[in-house]
Amino acid sequence: MNEKTVNPVLKQVLELGPTVIFFLIYLRIKDEVYTFGGTDYSGFIVATIVFVPILLVAMGILWILTGKLSRIQVFTAFMVIFFGALTAWFNDERFFKMKTSIVNGLFAVILGIGLLRGKSLLQYVMGDMIPMEQEGWMILTKRLAFGFAVLAVANEIVWRTMSTDAWVKIETFAFPAALFLFLWAQIVMLQKYVIEPDDPKS
Rank of each mutant, 00 (worst) to 15 (best):
V50K: 06
R143E: 13
G112E: 04
E171M: 13
F95W: 15
N155R: 00
K11Q: 10
L86K: 11
I25H: 06
V188C: 10
L16S: 12
Q123N: 12
T39N: 08
Y41I: 03
P18Y: 04
W159N: 02
Q123T: 02
T19S: 12
I139N: 07
E3A: 10
M98E: 13
A108Q: 03
G60R: 09
A108D: 09
S70F: 03
W89C: 06
D128R: 15
T76L: 13
V80G: 02
G127Y: 02
P200W: 00
S120T: 05
G60D: 03
L181K: 02
E32G: 12
T87W: 06
T66G: 04
T5H: 14
A145H: 04
M126F: 15
L16I: 14
L14Y: 01
A47R: 05
L122S: 03
V194S: 12
F83K: 04
I102M: 06
M162Y: 14
F96G: 00
F22H: 00
A178C: 10
R143H: 12
A149G: 15
Q186D: 12
I195E: 07
L27D: 00
A145V: 01
W167T: 06
F82E: 06
F36T: 04
M129W: 10
Q73A: 15
L24H: 05
V50C: 00
S42W: 00
A152I: 00
T39H: 08
Q186G: 05
T100G: 11
F36A: 07
L62F: 09
V20K: 01
T87C: 03
I29T: 03
K192S: 14
G105R: 01
V46A: 00
T35Q: 09
V50A: 09
D92S: 05
A166M: 14
F51E: 00
F146W: 15
A47P: 02
I64T: 13
R71N: 13
Q123V: 02
V188L: 14
N104L: 07
I130H: 09
E135C: 01
E135G: 14
P197I: 02
F180Q: 07
F75P: 00
N7W: 02
D165W: 08
W63C: 04
N91C: 05
K142Y: 11
N2L: 11
G37W: 01
L144A: 05
G136V: 00
L65D: 08
L56G: 01
G105A: 01
G127L: 07
L62Y: 07
S120R: 02
V46M: 09
V9P: 10
L16W: 09
M79H: 04
A178I: 13
L122T: 05
M1E: 13
F95I: 00
A154I: 12
G17L: 06
L179V: 14
K142A: 07
L121E: 11
F75S: 12
E196D: 13
I45Q: 02
I49M: 12
L27K: 11
T161A: 10
I25W: 02
W184V: 11
G37N: 06
L122F: 13
L140S: 00
T66W: 01
A174F: 15
V188E: 14
